[in-house]
Structure formats: structure tokens, C-alpha cells
Amino acid sequence: MSKREKLRITKIESQKRNPRRVSLYLDGRFAMGIDLQVAQDMGLRQGLELSQSQLQKVTSAAEKSKAKSFALDFIGYRARSVWEVAERLKKRGHSQNVIDQVIRELRQSDLLDDVQFAAQWAQSRVATKPLGERLLRRELKLKGISNEIVEKTVAETFGQVSQKELAANLLKIRRKRYLALDEKKAKQRMAAFLLRRGFPREVVWEVVEQALHKGKED
């Protein structure tokens, strides 16, 4: 490649909104924004000439840095699954190669772990808004969790917590809603509610019968 085919860095300027990023100008024109640390690591400076292959490396590094910065902010709000991060980066227009690199680095740093994510999700859901294994299984799959991890998480979660107890507690909270109903309608509504919460049918009918029996005693 001849010297004429190279592009000269004519200015590197700090960005006003984000001092950790700089604007890179090539031959007097704005070319891209790039993380300051990346620019320093790549030895970018005013007057440096870049070949097309060098420019491609800078462009790729800039995209990866931007994608990783977003991903770190994204997982900073709450734990995320690998699929959630990858999908969000894809929607932002990042290439699959960059997405794969970012995901790999986050996993290596233990910032992304589907096993931990699934366990935390299950614990949170059981504690704050009790649900049965069927609904938990569906929610985890919607987060892109593999079948193997889903089944392991469901088994461990309900090996420690009784679905029957969870369902019974839910009905206790909602008990007043059914007091004015006749037995048949109350039974139907209680069962429908627990089934929507993902509890197995055998658990649902047992808990509903117990709730109705207790209601008669009261």
C-alpha cells in the first residue's frame, strides 16, 4: 500500500459528554468515537498514519469497547443471562464477532454466569412472588437458559421449598377474595389462580381442598 492510501490522524479530541472517550479525526474529518484507554493502548496519536488494515483494527477495537461498556452498564442494573446480553447487543447493531468477544470476556470475569443467574432468579421469585415449577421453568427458558440448567435449578429450588406450602400461603393471602363466593366458584377461582402461578395440578387440588375444608371449620 502506498503512503497516499494511508489516513493520517489529524486530531484526537476529548468528548464533552464523556471524558473517558475521545473523537478521532482522520485527514481532517471525524472518523469515530473511541474509548480513551483503547486509544492509548493502541498507541494512537496525532500525526500517526494508518493503513486500511490498521484502521480496521482500530474500528473493531472501538466497537468492542463500546459494546462491552454498554454490557457492563446493562448487567449493572440487575443480573442478566448470557442470552439477554447477547440479544441486547444485537439489537444495538453490534456484529456477532464483537458480541462473542464481549460475552466471552464477561464470562471469563465471572460477570456472566447462567447457573448463578438461574439460581438467583429462582430464589428471588420464590421469595417475592411465589410460583410453581411450571412457571419458573417457563420464565428461565424465556431468559435463554439451557434445558440442563433449567431442570437443575428447578430441582434444587423445589428440593428446598415445598410447592404445597407456597401454594397454601398464596391462598391465605388471597383468602378474603373467596369468602363471599359459593364453594364451587371459590374452588374454581382458587384452582385457576394457582395453575396460572405454575403449580402442578395435584398440588393445586390438594391445597384448594384443604383451604375449603379450613374455611368450613372457620
Rank of each mutant, 00 (worst) to 15 (best):
S2I: 08
S2N: 15
R4D: 13
R8A: 11
T10G: 03
K11Y: 07
K11A: 15
K11R: 14
N18K: 12
N18W: 12
R20G: 09
R21W: 14
R21H: 12
S23N: 13
Y25E: 03
Y25A: 01
L26Q: 02
L26M: 05
D27E: 10
D27Y: 09
G28M: 05
M32G: 04
G33K: 13
L36M: 09
L36P: 04
L36R: 13
Q37G: 08
Q37N: 11
V38P: 03
V38S: 07
Q40C: 06
M42C: 01
L44Q: 00
G47S: 07
L48G: 02
L50D: 01
S51V: 00
Q52C: 05
S53W: 08
Q54L: 02
K57E: 14
A61F: 02
K64T: 11
K64G: 07
K64M: 06
S65P: 03
S65N: 08
K66L: 11
F70D: 04
D73I: 10
F74P: 00
I75F: 01
Y77R: 13
V82N: 15
V82T: 15
W83M: 08
E84P: 01
V85Y: 04
V85E: 01
A86W: 00
K90W: 08
K91E: 15
G93T: 08
G93C: 08
H94R: 07
H94M: 11
Q96H: 12
Q96W: 08
N97A: 15
I99A: 03
I99Q: 01
Q101R: 15
E105F: 09
E105D: 12
L106V: 04
L106F: 02
R107A: 03
S109A: 15
D110A: 11
D110R: 15
D110P: 04
L111T: 02
D113H: 05
A118D: 03
Q120R: 13
W121M: 14
A122L: 01
A127C: 06
P130Q: 02
L140V: 00
L140P: 00
L142K: 13
G144R: 01
S146C: 00
N147I: 04
E148K: 12
K152Y: 09
V154W: 03
A155K: 13
A155M: 04
T157M: 02
T157C: 02
V161A: 02
Q163F: 03
A167I: 00
A168L: 07
L170I: 14
I173Y: 12
D182Y: 09
E183H: 08
A186Y: 05
R189G: 08
A191Q: 12
R196C: 04
F199I: 01
R201C: 02
E206F: 01
V208Y: 10
Q210P: 09
A211M: 09
L212E: 01
G215K: 05
D218Q: 13
D218E: 14
